[in-house]
């Protein structure tokens, strides 16, 4: 048929618009929008939380999915270590488990932030979020992950190590630092690891493979400095513990208050770096596959 056929309502409206949205009443007496007016006006924006709040919730949920699995593996490792230790020998295994856990935790935070924030900038902007919202969600998400991990690590160190000791009936190497110092140190390391994750992910979006060259700057150096600083608090007055003597001397010589300030400065630099990469990040259209 080449001309519009009967516009009579009684006619068959097999492809009635109404069925598409399921709102109108097909074949019924749907209101006729007056020509030139806009009936069914787009409703005012429904009340919704601020974009960064919505994105932070989304990011936290994403990280929950990634970290829970890893944390379960770590918990199993601890249980095995405690079990072996209870079987008599195994103080070496217990020590290894302990240190492996403590130094792994910040990297789980790093990975989670790379996957759930840094590498997702394009998709978040595509979904309508500003780069500012992505940055804020990344920093808030980092803080949440760092707090959870630092508390968990401190509990493992104090309670878990105690369990191992009683299982072994032997003395294990325990930090002499007070719990709050350990908590503070773990918090700073995890936070730095997490924010480095945002920076590293974003720099790969920005520079592609070239961002590999920047890894020493985007995570290597800041993480190393933060590690040295925090261990100067947790390992103060203890033996070399495998450290080169110059490092031990340096860490023992650092007073606590300036160390805390330096530590915050490193964190601040990484966060500023992430903001610098993200704030004007161009996302030119990629060739469709």
């Amino acid at each position: 048929m080449n001309t519009p056929t009967s516009p009579a309502r009684s006619g068959s409206l097999g492809r009635s618009s109404a069925s598409v949205t399921g709102r109108s009443t097909p074949g019924g007496s749907a209101a006729e929008p007056a020509p030139g007016t806009t009936a069914g006006d787009t409703a005012a924006t429904p009340p919704a939380a601020a974009p960064w709040v919505r994105l932070t919730r989304y990011v936290l949920r994403c990280m929950l999915g990634i970290t829970v699995g890893t944390l379960v593996v770590l918990a199993v490792a601890w249980a095995v270590a405690v079990g072996v230790a209870a079987g008599g020998r195994g103080d070496l295994l217990a020590q290894i488990t302990h240190y492996a856990t403590m130094s792994t935790v910040p990297w789980i935070a790093f990975t989670a932030l790379v996957i759930c924030v840094g590498a997702q900038v394009r998709h978040y902007v595509h979904a309508g979020f500003t780069r500012r919202a992505v940055t804020v969600a990344g920093l808030v998400g980092s803080l949440v992950v760092a707090v959870v991990f630092a508390v968990g690590a401190t509990v493992l160190d104090r309670v878990g190590l105690g369990l191992m000791e009683s299982a072994l009936g032997d003395e294990l190497f325990v930090h002499e630092a007070p719990w709050w110092a350990l908590l503070g140190a773990m918090l700073m390391v995890c936070l730095t690891g997490a924010v480095c994750g945002v920076l590293v992910g974003a720099s790969f979006v920005r520079w592609g493979g070239w961002a590999t060259v920047l890894l020493p700057l985007t995570v290597g150096l800041p993480y190393f400095v933060q590690d040295v600083l925090t261990r100067s608090v947790t390992l103060r007055g203890e033996g070399p513990g495998g450290r080169p003597s110059w490092l031990q001397d340096l860490q023992d010589a650092l007073p606590t208050a300036p160390t805390a300030v330096l530590s915050l400065l490193v964190l601040g630099l990484v966060a500023a770096g992430a903001w610098l990469v993200l704030r004007r990040l161009p996302l030119p259209p990629r060739a469709s596959a």
Partner: peptide
């Protein structure tokens, strides 16, 4: 879908 729902209040 969930991401875009999160990003678009409408």
């Amino acid at each position: 879908l969930r991401l875009h729902q999160t990003g678009r209040p409408r």
